[in-house]
Design a protein around this nucleic acid. Structure first.
Length: 201
DNA sequence: CCGCTGATATTCT
DNA sequence: GAATATCAGCGGG
């Protein structure tokens, strides 16, 4: 089965399949521990909610490519595009554990503890050396390799981080007990205390 | 460990 | 003009 076929389903079904997958780029390999699903027109939390724009165009393309965007004036975040061509659907890569190339990752993230190397979507991009011009790159190509593994037995789920829209969709997925899973923070303006506990005992 | 704040620029209204 | 799929650094407990 090709990568594109494996990622062809809706984002919320593909997302848990990405947990435990290995992503390699520019000398660093990450084991993904936390992701979030984003759909298109039906999902107020998605960049594609109001239709296709120059920024989100890659989300509408074929699965198995990288959607990279710039936010907060200084950070980049990366998504795996899923679904079928023509639908907007993607999974945000929120956190991972460095399993190879850790010296290189440390150089890219000076001052970080090993635990925090890829703990958070912008940190993950930094550790992997992902930049804005990697937007649209193929994940089964020469530069990026994404290897799906065995499905995680019981992924934890909870509300997505930092969103004002659609907080009721529990479309954040993570591997229970992983120290690299990022910390839940409700978006500004949301009830403090909303959301699931982050680190189950 | 926790919570708060400032930085910073693209994106869409 | 407002909001943003964030992070590092700071101070306090």
């Amino acid at each position: 089965m090709s990568l594109q076929e494996a990622l062809a389903g809706p984002a919320e079904q593909v997302a848990p399949r990405l947990l435990g997958a290995l992503l390699t780029h520019a000398g660093v390999t990450l084991r993904l521990t936390e992701v979030e699903a984003y759909a298109g027109a039906a999902d107020p939390g998605s960049h594609a909610y109001r239709g296709r724009t120059a920024r989100n165009a890659v989300m509408f393309g074929p699965a198995g490519h990288l959607y990279v965007y710039f936010t907060y004036g200084m950070h980049t975040c990366a998504n795996v595009v899923c679904g079928v061509e023509g639908t907007a659907s993607a999974c945000l890569l929120r956190a991972g554990e460095v399993v190879d190339g850790i010296d290189l990752a440390r150089e890219r993230r000076l001052g970080s503890t090993d635990r925090n190397l890829a703990r958070g979507p912008a940190r993950l991009c930094q550790a992997l050396g992902i930049r804005l011009d990697d937007n649209g790159a193929a994940l089964d190509g020469d530069r990026f390799q994404l290897l799906l593994g065995e499905p995680v037995a019981t992924p934890a789920t909870g509300p997505r981080v930092g969103l004002r829209g659609a907080p009721e969709r529990p479309w954040r997925f993570w591997i229970q007990g992983e120290p690299t899973v990022s910390v839940y923070r409700p978006a500004k303006g949301l009830r403090p205390g909303f959301g699931a506990p982050d680190t189950p005992v």
